[in-house]
Design a protein around this nucleic acid. Structure first.
Lengths: 242, 242
DNA sequence: AAGTGGTCTAGACCACGTT
DNA sequence: ACGTGGTCTAGACCACTTG
């Protein structure tokens, strides 16, 4: 007997370090201030730089820190509340491109397209801007069968506007959404002006017509470090949990 | 001239590795299968183990892999769709504890409590179970001023049920929510039966009465690796983006 | 040129689960 | 006892930004 005791496994160093840093940050730093550099911090806490970085990684994931190569580690501003509008009114989007072609398998499934031959869908990609910076990307998929009357001779940007306009005129009865965690691949990362691999909130929206028929699907990605998705009224201003 | 060229900075090894692994996983493995161990994989790809682990970290964040100490690295099951119910019907929750006391500052602010003296709130914590496993935690805050008639002599579990019952009877006109990324601290991690630091989706819900008055606030955390939060109807079955 | 964070290495030891 | 993933180290070099 004896080894059955709770063993008192100490928490990993990087987690202890994170706890200390959270307190320090909250008490002694303000948004925009610069932390000491990683080598100094590691020395101060008596750990290897890699271990310190593990703690900083956590804090960055939580949106408390921003690290800029060549500059330093800064205290991050509170996350922006991004309204996930039911009926989006005036929004700041920048159209990237627009095309028509076969839907990716996953999207075709969501659209309820079961046919063997790949279904044609209009695809519009755009970037959501907020406070002058790119915070999210969106790819909208509308089956050509739902919206067949987009002139093909238009320039890409005109066609994008035409597709969006017709989309907004669709008899949409309701939306259902899902939010999950992902990482930005090359395409999204480029649009968000960030390196690949940054964490993103992936928002999938299904637009339903009558009888629950899916009229369109949109897949959006938002920078998880700087964004907080809000549903319903204004965002709730809570930061720390429980 | 010449150095202005795009420089062709190669992508980091861990990102290339991730890309290769994604393809390999999608094409040659099924849910529940075990990957070769990290040392072998690192050797096979000719990289240090730490670099390989960086790639695996990404895939775990995306919910594609699950790593179990002492066991190995497994292909993860698709994420569970967790309905964020407007009017939750029959749900599988396990009550953890219940108390009354001063609201944390952040919660007090969300509740619109501006007084100098700390406002008393009822606090109920519970764990959401799904398929037999803990997937999320919730802490509900209801001001005592909104719901003053909970008998104080009851046992904790009875008081929790009493608070929840009265909460459900409140004249709630609407909910507004926010979703952001966080990491589980000790408390939540313990309830989720995971180590501290795992990524979680933090869901903040504000329950409003008439005139927009905030009647209650709930802060929930869901395991980001295994959960996908769904709003509205059933979850949309889409996995990959764009 | 100097300082910052980002990547990568090679190796060690620990905690956990199975045999 | 053995094999797995988890943590930690000490050091190197690269990419980016600023004086």
């Amino acid at each position: 007997m004896g080894t059955t005791a709770t063993a008192a496994v100490p928490e990993p160093k990087y987690w202890q370090l994170r706890t200390v840093l959270v307190r320090t940050i909250d008490e002694e730093f303000h948004t925009g201030e610069v932390l000491p550099n990683e080598r100094d911090l590691a020395a101060r806490f008596g750990v290897a730089r890699a271990t310190l970085r593990q703690a900083l990684d956590q804090l960055e994931l939580e949106g408390r820190l921003v690290r800029r190569r060549g500059i330093g580690t800064l205290i991050a501003a509170p996350r922006m509340g991004i309204p996930v509008a039911e009926a989006s009114s005036r929004d700041t989007w920048r159209i990237v491109d627009c095309g028509i072609g076969a839907a990716p398998a996953a999207v075709a499934a969501a659209l309820g397209i079961t046919g063997d031959e790949p279904a044609e869908v209009h695809t519009v990609r755009r970037v959501r801007m907020m406070a002058g910076q790119a915070v999210g990307t969106e790819t909208l998929f509308v089956p050509a069968a739902v919206m067949p009357h987009v002139p093909g001779f238009l320039a890409e940007s005109s066609r994008a506007r035409a597709v969006l306009k017709q989309f907004q005129a669709l008899p949409i009865e309701g939306e259902s959404r899902a939010v999950e965690l992902g990482v930005a691949e090359e395409e999204q990362a480029r649009l968000l002006e960030r390196p690949p691999g940054i964490p993103v909130l992936v928002l999938t929206t299904r637009y339903a017509g009558d009888a629950g028929k899916t009229l369109a699907v949109a897949i959006s990605t938002y920078r998880a470090d700087t964004c907080k998705l809000t549903f319903g009224d204004a965002g709730v201003e809570v930061r720390a949990a429980s």
